[in-house]
Design a protein around this nucleic acid. Structure first.
Lengths: 359, 359
DNA sequence: TTGTAAGCGTTATCAC
DNA sequence: GTGATAACGCTTACAA
């Protein structure tokens, strides 16, 4: 039936097979409202440029038909997708989850939806995710950390999609960053302990491979200690999964090892530190009298546990909000000159104290 | 040169202004490979139906031009977006974060990307998110819980977008659910305590408003206790934010109140229970000798804290995976008859024990 | 203020 | 196995 365009026989458009299973389209709304498709479009995109009466009629028709504008059609015609992308290592870490929540809130207020991708700390997956997002037409993209394959940044450059590095901030980075200086944060932790008189340290950290933030933290520890002629013994350097369990086993190994026991343990995050704290209780090690312990993140339990944990608070939701705002500004052609630094705050609590007199 | 069809003056297609800022399109690839656009399309969608030589040539051209297929164009032409939507209350809760991670993994393996929306436990926001997702053309959608505005389900029905309710499972629900029976889970907790001889209970739970899961939990507690002629005193029923701090203050209030002290406290989740545990330590209340405590979720610290926490483990990542699989099956027209139940497991640990002899 | 009509980048339907 | 070409649903000059 329905011959394509010049059929003499009147075709029946209302009954014509719809690929989209009967969903109303803009044209249907236009017909019902008795206006052109352009007018319907205007009602939604430049409502001021259409007279109130017509506007009302169109809105009415749209409601009647339950019309929902099709984003793909919109994107194609306007070359704007109103989609942003965010790539994080994992959702299983509170710091990234809340960063995403912060971004989402800001983007949502501007009608932009967020595509989320997890790299699982794997550079190859990060690259894949970025490519998928570019194919999806994300207008901007936020990526945690800057340790990524060059192809990833090549792709971003070629497509000219504005991006921002989150969570990490490094002077001299070629990228726009929003976050904090992980190295400096750990320098501060180490110095806090040195000021308390500590001279013998252990470190329990999460896997550093492919993770610029963790590498920076370790560097911070080493640098701060080196200034005082101190180094962490290899047997006192434990790298493993960022879990309570690994924190526990690390302390046990450190305490029962043959080397001189440290008076302070710097942990890569609060999970590890809490593990150390719990194991210390079990081994009868008094914190902070015999041993000082520090964490990072300031998770909820850090200030509730006994002894409360000295740690560093970072407002990761704020990182997310700022990152989103920066990207929105780029889209708007505004020149966002705001610094990308979200300052971490050392929360000195009960788990750190002056070094015990008897080394 | 190739005048399109009737233009006398030769146009210069290579230089024509591109709205998309110089990104290569399928047509460019076709031209460079010396084939038609249809063939390029086939290379990516039905590679078997194109000869190896041509295929190679097209792939080569695409690489040269750094061509990335445009998802909007694809969606428009194929009426498939390869996008799924997920709506969760918040990312700030591990159980939902890992559910999303599980879904994402399954969807990604099928080339489907996930749009994520957070309702912040607000029905109105949930509705907005659903509408936004439908506009984005999600092919399927997963929503936590079934306590949502009717308009939400109306929209789903009208657009015929397959959906699934996650985290909650209820016999007789009009929706397909993947999760567990929150009521039954709390009946089990209560019965565990009753078997241990407890007859005097307190409950510390998160806000129940607009939250069918929490309401079901409370119902479970009440039903199980009622079977034994027991009810929770109003002064022993504390509802508030799901935080360690609220857990602490609840125990303090319960313990210092004028009513007879309970021998067991059932908490709405592990955060609250850990708060109770920590406050008990501070108040010198012996757990479980004087007081039994239960949580829910089995967060990492639950089995590490002392005394270790009796709680319920739910594999939320599995809920996410199963939900995604179900939705994929619907898309494939398969009849997924798998039960939607992901069985919770009671983890009886040190924080619960027989009721103290002296009531 | 409103309408006409030409795209936007892809896929699908036919012919060949 | 390939190639024309008409959709897909919307926006946007340009015209009226």
């Amino acid at each position: 039936m329905s011959s394509s365009h010049e059929s003499a026989t009147p075709d029946t458009p209302a009954v014509r097979t719809r690929r989209n299973s009967g969903r109303a389209v803009l044209g249907d709304v236009a017909r019902l409202a008795g206006v052109s498709t352009a007018t319907v479009s205007r009602v939604y995109n430049e409502p001021d440029r259409v007279s109130p009466g017509v506007r009302e009629r169109v809105l009415q028709a749209a409601t009647t038909l339950n019309w929902i504008p099709n984003a793909a059609g919109r994107a194609l015609a306007s070359t704007r997708t109103h989609i942003a992308g965010a790539i994080i290592p994992t959702l299983d870490d509170q710091v990234f989850a809340s960063q995403v929540a912060g971004m989402q809130a800001v983007f949502a207020s501007r009608g932009i939806t967020l595509f989320l991708g997890c790299s699982n700390y794997d550079p190859a997956q990060a690259l894949t995710q970025v490519q998928a997002m570019l194919a999806r037409g994300v207008e901007v993209i936020a990526i945690v950390g800057e340790a990524h394959p060059p192809e990833l940044f090549d792709a971003l450059r070629q497509t000219r999609v504005p991006y921002v590095i989150t969570y990490a901030y490094r002077e001299g980075s070629p990228h726009h960053c929003i976050g904090f200086d992980n190295r400096a944060a750990y320098v501060e932790i180490a110095e806090h302990l040195i000021e308390l008189g500590h001279r013998s340290f252990a470190a329990v950290i999460q896997p550093a491979r492919d993770n610029d933030r963790v590498q920076a933290r370790v560097t911070g520890i080493r640098e701060a200690l080196a200034r005082h002629g101190i180094a962490v013994r290899p047997s006192h350097m434990h790298e493993g999964p960022a879990t309570i369990a690994f924190g526990r086993e690390s302390l046990r190994a450190i305490w029962q090892g043959s080397d001189k026991r440290p008076t302070a343990i710097i942990c890569g995050n609060d999970q590890l530190a809490i593990g150390v704290l719990l194991e210390a209780a079990e081994l009868g090690i008094k914190v902070p009298q015999q041993l000082s312990v520090t964490g990072f993140d300031d998770v909820a339990i850090a200030q509730q546990i006994h002894p409360s944990l000295t740690t560093v608070r970072v407002d990761t939701a704020e990182i997310g909000r700022r990152a989103a705002q920066y990207l929105l500004d780029v889209l708007d052609g505004k020149n966002n000159t705001e610094s990308g630094v979200v300052q971490p705050v050392l929360m000195a609590r009960e788990s750190t104290a002056s070094v015990p007199l008897s080394g």
